[in-house]
Design a protein around this nucleic acid. Sequence first.
RNA 1: GGAGAGGUGGCCGAGUGGCCGAAGGCAAUCGCCUGCUAAGCGAUUGAACGCUUAAUAGGUGUUCCGGGGGUUCGAAUCCCCCCCUCUCCGCCA
Length: 427
Amino acid sequence: MGVRMIDPKLLKKDPDLIRASLARRRMPVDLGALVSKDESRRQIQKEGDELRGNHKRRSEEMARAMRMKANTDTLRAELRTLSTRISELEERQRAADSAFEAEALLIPNLLLPDVPDGGPPEENPVVSVQGEKPAFDFQPKPHWEIGESLGILDFERAAKISRARFTALLGAGARLERALISFMMDLHASRGYTEIWPPFLVNAAAMRGTGQLPKFSEDLFKCEGQDLWLVPTAEVPVTNFHAGEILPADRLPLRYAAYTPCFRAEAGAAGKDTRGMIRQHQFDKVELVKFCRPEESEAELESLRRDAEEVLRRLGLPYRVVVLRSGDTGFASAKTYDIEVWLPGQTAYREISSCSTFTDFQARRAMIRHRAKSGETALVHTLNGSALAVGRTLIALLENGQRSDGSVALPSALHPYLGGLTEISKP
RNA sequence: GGAGAGGUGGCCGAGUGGCCGAAGGCAAUCGCCUGCUAAGCGAUUGAACGCUUAAUAGGUGUUCCGGGGGUUCGAAUCCCCCCCUCUCCGCCA
């Protein structure tokens, strides 16, 4: 009951398919233990079903006997014994179910066949390079130098009131962050996405639904003493928005755009990206989330990626798209494109969006279904992608728009959102 | 936070211990009927898991009346805890 993760039917029928996917992910997991836990769990359920059926039939006899005022002492005693055996068995069943589930929830999603094989030392294949890298007749600076000298980024005071990996934005910087959120949301809303402003704290069931829990709790912030967690991405509240629902097929695909702040503990990132605003405990992000029929999801991933790219195109930022190799693809994802923006201050492409299809993995965990034409219920596919990470977009604008005098030119697409501001210069 | 009311199928709503997966109505689907439509008549229509099966076809079993515990041979119905919704009061942006 309530066992949700990888498809238990697939585990029973074709565990080798799951093994092959795990091997592609470079995850040596022994499925044998899981398979035998599944078997014992099903065996116990079978026994329990038989016992309960027996008890049910004898109870009906009991009811009849009571009506006829017959003597029921023997029957009553028999039923009491049966009842005890059932409770014992149900105790075992609970244990077997949770043993199975605890392990099953740690199995990552199956990869799509076209995900390129390979692991971390290898580069992820570049599938597209777009935009002109700006040419500078001076040495371009990293965003933290630009931002501090313009007085729009303050790392020290942010660390004073919080700790490292927090940044305060000031003046034109704060204005730019706010403008970017509005610009992105307006763009997506005009292109068929429904705006949604979700809660920023969610419960553990929601975190489990999208796959953050139980495996990645150390990456999350939790409210002490409460079943409330700070969202690491809008994916969590928005995907779980339809948890437990059977969506009408004629309304699919559902497309949502949501802005949220994102909170990440960055537990494994000690020493990485310690300068500047690249890796923060808190950042803003606009996220696109889709729910669709299984047969539509691959096409929806492509259009999702295009919708994310559109933001960069309109901002005039150079970028490239990579497809993540099997060993790099996230736990819940079946296939992921990363969009990487060009940062001249660091002479590197850095991730600014990640667009993934989760096939039915999240839908199974969160029980999000639709009614197929044939009439029966079937899991939907879920997808999501950043469009975009706002803080990193701001960084990219600073580094790509910088001029030799230390000022920064802002793209015309943002001008309507900036109240007349077209550049940021020293006060 | 305090007081009260309530949470039953897609929706409304009956049901205070067994004959209840659950009356009745609405909605929907199929059929009949009617120039068309409406009305009318008839039938069908919840989900999960297991077993069976090539099958997510069919068959079959178990479970599910907000969630969890308890009483009882037996719980939608009785008891306890929790969650949620509504109304009033308090507080607050």
